[in-house]
Simulated scan of single mutants.
Amino acid sequence: MEATIVKTPFGKLEDGQTADLYTLTNSNGMTVKITNYGGIITHLTAPDREDNYEDVVLGFDSLADYLKGHPFFGALVGRYGNRIGQARFTLDGKSYSLAANNGPNSLHGGKKGFDKALWNAEEIRADTTVGLRLTHVSPDMDEGFPGTLNVEVVYTLQNDNSLRIDYKATTDKPTIVNLTNHSYFNLTGLKRDILAHELMLQADSIVPVNTRLIPTGKLMAVEGTPFDFTKPTPIGQRIDQTDHEQIKNGGGYDHCWAINRADQALLRFATVREPQSGRIMEVYTSEPGVQFYTGNFLDGSLSGKGATYSKRFGFCLETQHYPDSPNQRQFPSVVLRPDETYTSSTMFKFSAK
């Protein structure tokens, strides 16, 4: 079977522009559907131990459902993934105010982030892979961020059942950048919640947060806490230990883990296994951190693809720099200058056992 990519219309935006849906299929029959509206991964199929491919991401079948509003299902997030405290930061002595769209904080790029942009799309066909190149120009002071930012994101579906995401960005003024993808996974094939999934994270510490989910500025060791996933552990085993301040603050898991790494090479930092189907997802990244989120705010008011998206029906592994880094000098820098190129890579690889 040959790898293919097929483009179909996905619907109209309120301004009359048309969004498209691209269906990427590899030689095994794994499919990934991506729309150029928000760069959203709408569908992604993965095999179980009987080699049955089922959809394992939360989302919708129609553009109209995405336009009604959703918690970033499958979307590309920018300019800044995660929270910036008090929706402001200082760069080179100058203060910048951002849209406050999460209480007093700025979240995931503001009120109209990259998740709501219509990206330019270009199909990529190679010998053994198919891909989609998405590009977007974010103008100077877009949502309060300085500098005209040229962004390129390439999704590549490979024949080893992996989906790779490569990010690149350049700017004409000093700015801050932290891009990620916000897919919610459920390896049951959208049949049950995610609490029985077994997770292993190569991370010895988390970035603890206050009640507003803004980092305190220090790291916290995971050993002896509900945050220790250094050995495979069911996600639900300690998720409700609200006697732990961080579980209480996050309403479960909604924290950035600091990945154990020696350099910026692509590193496998996470393995997730769903016991009943046998599905396994391995995640690789070049980033220093990952926001592990367990769908604590899903409340059953949204449904799609025959499933009701109730609390903890999906989990996210958003590879990124730490939250609030622009205001925390001790964190890895998110500053991008005109003579630099921002690059980041993440890969999700699927198998079964």
Rank of each mutant, 00 (worst) to 15 (best):
A270N: 03
V154H: 12
A270D: 00
V283R: 04
Y155A: 08
K112W: 03
D55E: 08
N120D: 12
D140G: 06
M30G: 03
I259Y: 01
W257R: 05
N181T: 04
L219I: 03
W119S: 12
L132N: 00
S277I: 00
I124E: 13
H70K: 05
H70E: 14
R88I: 01
S351R: 04
F297R: 15
V334G: 00
G110A: 13
A99C: 14
D160K: 13
G110T: 11
D55N: 15
Q276R: 09
L132I: 06
H197A: 11
N249E: 03
E50L: 14
Q328Y: 01
V283T: 11
R49C: 06
T175S: 12
D65H: 07
N82L: 10
A121T: 05
K12W: 07
A262Y: 04
L134E: 07
N296D: 14
L24W: 03
A270H: 08
L134M: 10
T188H: 06
N52K: 15
K7A: 07
T343P: 01
S277P: 02
M141A: 09
A203H: 02
L107Q: 10
G217Y: 05
S106F: 06
L336Y: 12
G39K: 12
H244P: 07
R329S: 15
D55Y: 03
A270T: 13
E152N: 11
M30V: 07
M281A: 13
V272M: 15
I5K: 13
Q158I: 01
G16E: 05
I41D: 08
S106Q: 12
S183A: 14
V335T: 14
D142N: 11
S351N: 02
P288F: 01
T319G: 04
T18E: 14
T230I: 09
F185G: 00
K112S: 09
Q330C: 05
L91G: 13
N210A: 10
F114L: 15
G304P: 06
V32H: 04
N327P: 08
F114V: 14
Y53Q: 09
I34G: 00
V290C: 10
I40N: 04
L190M: 11
R238T: 07
Q291E: 11
K248M: 06
P338H: 10
I247E: 02
F229N: 05
Y167R: 10
Q291H: 15
L44P: 00
E14C: 04
R279I: 10
A126G: 13
G250V: 01
K168F: 03
G314D: 08
L118V: 09
N36V: 02
V283M: 09
I34W: 03
P275V: 03
L44W: 08
A99F: 05
R329D: 15
K68V: 08
A64E: 15
G217E: 06
N181S: 12
A100E: 04
Q264A: 13
S138A: 07
G295Q: 10
S97F: 07
L24T: 13
T18A: 11
T42G: 01
A196G: 03
D166G: 01
T171C: 11
K68A: 14
V283E: 03
R261W: 04
G39L: 10
